[in-house]
């Protein structure tokens, strides 16, 4: 019995180790956690359907900002944005506040949620990637 427990622990550790090494995320779990973060911090401006607000707050549906360069996306959440943002010929004028107060895990989860909701399908984002972007400043 004891031997079996040790075996389980070893296997489990190996799995955790592998996940940590490859940076893979359990997308489903991350999306579920990310939805809660989205509801609390993002929904007011970007709306429940990710459609944003015309001319004010940009949409998150199938846009290059969401589906493209992960680093740029992570940095918008970390640093906020007050640059002109144009999507499909439409300019969005409201500034976005920095959300650096969220943890690496929360940012990874919410971005994984956004990249896999509102018609989007893209790879997840890991806490390690957020940590890396945060360290760069």
């Amino acid at each position: 019995m004891k031997k079996f427990s040790v075996f389980i622990v070893i296997i489990f550790s190996a799995i955790v180790y592998l996940f940590a090494q490859t940076g893979t995320v359990d997308i489903k779990a991350s999306v579920q956690r990310g939805k809660k973060v989205y509801t609390q911090y993002c929904l007011a401006c970007h709306q429940a359907d990710g459609g944003g607000v015309p001319r004010m707050n940009p949409p998150l549906q199938k846009t290059e900002y969401v589906l493209g360069d992960k680093k740029r996306l992570i940095n918008i959440v970390l640093k906020g944005s007050n640059d002109p943002i144009e999507i499909n010929g439409e300019e969005y004028v409201n500034p976005m506040a920095s959300h650096a107060h969220l943890s690496d895990q929360q940012i990874a989860d919410v971005l994984t949620f956004v990249r896999n909701s509102f018609g989007n399908k893209a790879s997840g984002i890991t806490p390690a990637e957020v940590k890396q972007a945060r360290a760069k400043k």
Partner: peptide
Amino acid sequence: EQDRQQGS
């Protein structure tokens, strides 16, 4: 101080 920043 920081527009639309919670706590600012």
